[in-house]
Amino acid sequence: MDSINKAVLDLKRLDLLANNDSSIHRLDARAKVLVTCVFIICIVSYGRYELAALFPFFIFPAVIIALADLPPLFIARKIALLCPFVLVVGMFNPVFDREVLLHLGSFAVSGGWVSFASIVVRSILTVGAAFILVGVTGFTAVCQALERLGMPQVFAVQLLFLYRYIFVLTEEAGRASRARELRACGKKGLGIRSFSSLIGHLLLRTWQRAERIHMAMLARGFTGAFHAHRQSHFGKSELMFVLGWSTLFIFLRLQNASQLLGKLVTGLFP
């Protein structure tokens, strides 16, 4: 099944990005999680017709992508697969909100289109922030950061286990699904009946795997507790990173930088 393999390859590629070594990668994961949160909250706190004010925030992904040496086209391609639900819901804005909000020359633009554009830009920024966070931090480190920020250990362990076995199980599912497709001549045989027995088998094998893993854990003295030790410290550079970016975000949130710059320039050449 091509789509599964593609999805897995994408996942692996994003996962491997976290192995890069850069000033951003070396920062404590907590700093990056916090900055990403501030960023997203600032973005979503804008009113629905806010569009121009959102653009200055592109400075964050641009700078981080550059400093951390992430592949910009890959990130852009991933962002381009924007959640279709958002677009569908967003498309209704121009339908319901026809009041003219601004004129571009002789072109009247309705509030609906402005808010639709705003939704798209928000999506790009928030979704991009999530990808960048994973790309510069890695899933494991994000989980550990969240745990140190107060997430219960049970849930942290769950996330780590899930992530570990995603790679094993997506490959297994991909193989099973490929076998089914190869024998489903002309799309027949891809219905619910074959699906459910395929999923059923996959589920039983998964269950047995869980039993074997449990065995392996017991064999190494597992008694229910996870001992993790990780030296990471929230030092000066982390503090600078968090304070610097947060200040910038809040400044941008309070001052419409696009407007300011635009005024400056149009003022120069009136």
């Binding site: 362990v157 769950q158 780590l160 286990f161 899930l162 992530y163 570990r164 076995y165 995603i166 094993v168 199980l169 997506t170 996959l202 589920l203 998964t206 269950w207 795997r209 869980a210 893993i213 449990h214 854990m217 229910g224």
Partner: peptide, 10 residues
């Protein structure tokens, strides 16, 4: 513990 993990992956 492992069961939840692998069923999530499943």
């Amino acid at each position: 513990v492992p069961l939840m993990g692998v069923l999530g992956a499943f």
